[in-house]
Amino acid sequence: MRRVLFFLNPLLMQRRNRRALVEGLARQLRGEGCEVELQDTLSAHSAGEQAKDAVAAGFDTLFVCGGDGTLFQVIQGVAGSEATVGIIPFGTGNVLAQNLRLPRDPVAAFSLLRRAEAVPVPLGRISCKSPGHAQDRTWYFTIAAGMGVHAALMNLAPTGSGKRVGGRAAYFAGGFRLLLQHPVDPFDLELTLIDGSRRTLQASELIAVRVPAINVWRPGGNLEAPELQVAIVPATTRLGLAHASFHALLTGRSANGTNGSSRLPYPEYVTATQIACRPVQDHTYQSPLLVEADGEVIGLKRASITIAQRRLRLLWPR
Results as ranks from 00 to 15, higher is better:
Asn222His: 14
Gln39Ile: 07
Gly80Val: 05
Arg313Ser: 11
Phe72Leu: 00
Pro226Phe: 11
Leu241Gly: 02
Asp53Met: 14
Ala47Leu: 02
Ile305Pro: 05
Thr236Met: 05
Ala83Tyr: 03
Leu228Tyr: 12
Ala303Val: 03
Val297Glu: 02
Leu112Trp: 04
Ile194Val: 14
Arg302Thr: 10
Pro183Val: 10
Arg101Lys: 13
Ser127Trp: 08
Glu117Cys: 09
Ser254Gly: 12
Leu38Tyr: 10
Arg177Thr: 06
Thr84Ser: 10
Ile87Leu: 13
His247Ser: 12
Pro265Thr: 12
Leu193Asn: 07
Phe141Tyr: 13
Thr251Arg: 13
Arg313Asn: 15
Ser130Cys: 13
Leu179Pro: 01
Val149Asn: 11
Leu191Pro: 02
Leu178Ser: 08
Leu21Lys: 10
Ser127Met: 06
Glu190Thr: 14
Leu241Lys: 07
Gln202Gly: 01
Ala26Ile: 02
Ala51Thr: 06
Lys163Glu: 03
Leu179Ile: 09
Val165His: 10
Asn222Glu: 13
His182Asn: 08
Gln181Lys: 14
Thr92Phe: 01
Val4Tyr: 09
Ala231Lys: 06
Arg114Lys: 15
Leu239Met: 12
Leu12Met: 10
Met147Phe: 04
Arg15Thr: 10
Gln14Thr: 12
Gln50Tyr: 07
Arg198Met: 10
Thr237Tyr: 07
Leu11Met: 12
Ile214Ser: 05
Val165Thr: 11
Trp316Pro: 00
Arg218Ala: 11
Gly299Arg: 06
Asp188Ala: 13
Leu239Pro: 00
Pro10Leu: 08
Gly148Asn: 10
Pro131Asn: 08
Pro234Thr: 03
Ala244Glu: 09
Pro103Lys: 05
Ile194Asp: 08
Leu312Gly: 03
Ala144Phe: 10
Val291Tyr: 11
Glu35Val: 14
Gln98Ile: 00
